[in-house]
């Protein structure tokens, strides 16, 4: 369908679109550019470009250990969340609509509530049980919201799977378990994978919940936060932000590609 074109209206819409995109993306671009600034104090315009801060950051023990912690937490939380979230979706899919809505609501709360609330709740819960804050509490806390991502992804796919596929498998002699392994699970694989990538990205740059549950552990976002507050290591912060963007944006793009191809399959 083609509408009659009004050049003035077209121009206005384009201008507005560019303004919004600029508002969203310009700060990111500036931080990315600062990462290549040779100077140790940020002044605009950048006078000389260099990769010296990349080398310096990579050599920084604190940054390296924070990066390692972040990768480990994100990896473990994603794995745990994948098992739990997929099982939750499979279990809830068989329930009545009303119980399913109630269950989804409760399960989705950790992501719907402000992070501060989830963080405080986790903090007092672990304190109450006398569990010391360490790497494990951090992984548990991250698993709660990672699980929601997986659950939502798998649930959406399950709802679009016609029940006749399961019936057809049984019709041809497969037990329910065999049918699940050969039909349902392969059809869910794409949405599980895309959920895993998104969950990993979410965990990798999480700050708020981590603040309340990390104890003495330092993740990369926590290191950035600390560095900015103290006003130190600013050139290194820019490099680290550059790295975080690179590490999180790739899984997000891959995840969306996967989700799109999974939905095309049926």
């Amino acid at each position: 369908m083609k509408h009659a074109r009004n050049p003035a209206a077209d121009m206005t819409i384009w201008a507005a679109a560019i303004a919004v995109l600029g508002f969203l993306l310009l700060p990111l671009v500036i931080v990315l550019l600062y990462a290549f600034d040779a100077s140790s104090v940020q002044v605009w315009p950048i006078r000389a470009l260099s990769l010296r801060w990349f080398a310096a950051t990579w050599a920084d023990e604190e940054v390296r250990s924070a990066l390692l912690v972040s990768l480990e937490v994100a990896g473990l939380a994603t794995l745990l969340a994948t098992v739990l979230g997929t099982l939750a979706a499979l279990g809830m899919n068989g329930l009545s609509t009303r119980s399913m809505q109630a269950g989804s609501f409760l399960l989705t709360l950790p992501i719907a509530l402000p992070g501060v609330l989830t963080g405080i709740a986790m903090n007092s819960f672990f304190s109450l049980l006398d569990i010391p804050f360490n790497f494990i509490t951090l992984v548990i806390a991250h698993t709660t919201f990672c699980m929601v991502i997986i659950f939502n992804n798998v649930m959406a796919r399950l709802r679009r799977l016609p029940p006749s596929l399961r019936e057809a498998a049984q019709d041809m002699g497969a037990t329910p378990w065999h049918g699940f392994i050969t039909i349902t699970l392969p059809l869910l694989a794409g949405s599980v994978m895309s959920g895993m990538l998104l969950a990993f990205a979410l965990s990798f740059d999480e700050v708020i919940v981590s603040t309340f549950t990390a104890g003495s552990e330092t993740t990369l976002p926590l290191w950035i936060f600390g560095a900015i507050r103290l006003g130190q290591h600013m050139p290194e912060v820019n490099v680290v932000v550059f790295a975080v963007i690179a590490i999180t944006i790739l899984p997000i793009i891959a995840g969306q590609k996967l989700a799109a191809s999974a939905s095309r399959e049926h």
């Binding site: 016609p162 006749s164 019936e167 057809a168 498998a169 019709d171 041809m172 399959e265 049926h266």
Partner: peptide, 13 residues
């Protein structure tokens, strides 16, 4: 017994 389903129920993968 085998069934021919109304929506065919072919396995898409």
């Amino acid at each position: 017994v085998n069934t021919m389903f109304q929506d065919y129920a072919l396995f898409p993968h």
